[in-house]
Amino acid sequence: MRLPFTAGVFPLIILLMTGCKPNTTDRINNAASITSTSRLPENPLEMTPMAVSLQPDAKTMSTLYGNGIATKRLRDGADYATGSVLYLVTWKGKADPDWFGARIPDRVTTIERISFDQNGQKSYAFFKGPAWYADTDMKEEERRGIILSIPIATSP
């Protein structure tokens, strides 16, 4: 009678102990990660971050990414050469749960892509993210202008 009882209590204790360990998986910001590319040609998060911006009214935050050719601008301030690909990923911001005073990315609202094709053509494409809201006004000409004029975040 006693043995099964002790045998039963031990796993219970172990279960309780392991159950209280901090959960590591929820430290990854999955909500803000780009996890599927149904229509994206590539994952912008894999590219090199070049600039950041905040839109206080919309409470969003954006990062400008570039491919290898585009990031030449980071080093020497050169214009974007043919073959450059830029992405502007915009997230809804949220309060950092670990630091009062900080805001961090929540879900993606929009992803925009500009590529510098042969003979000076620039193509613009736009993708809705999970936090897209319908009344966002995305005028292509205006958006191109904004994306191309974001000041690069320079560091020594």
């Binding site: 894999e46 090199t48 950041v52 911001g93 900080a102 805001r103 961090i104």
Partner: peptide, 19 residues
């Protein structure tokens, strides 16, 4: 600067923006 951005933060406590 060739590494990937694992997050960005807006710090309203000290008026900075971070990668």
């Amino acid at each position: 600067r060739n590494w990937k951005a694992i997050s960005t933060t807006e710090r309203f406590d000290n008026g900075t923006i971070r990668i």
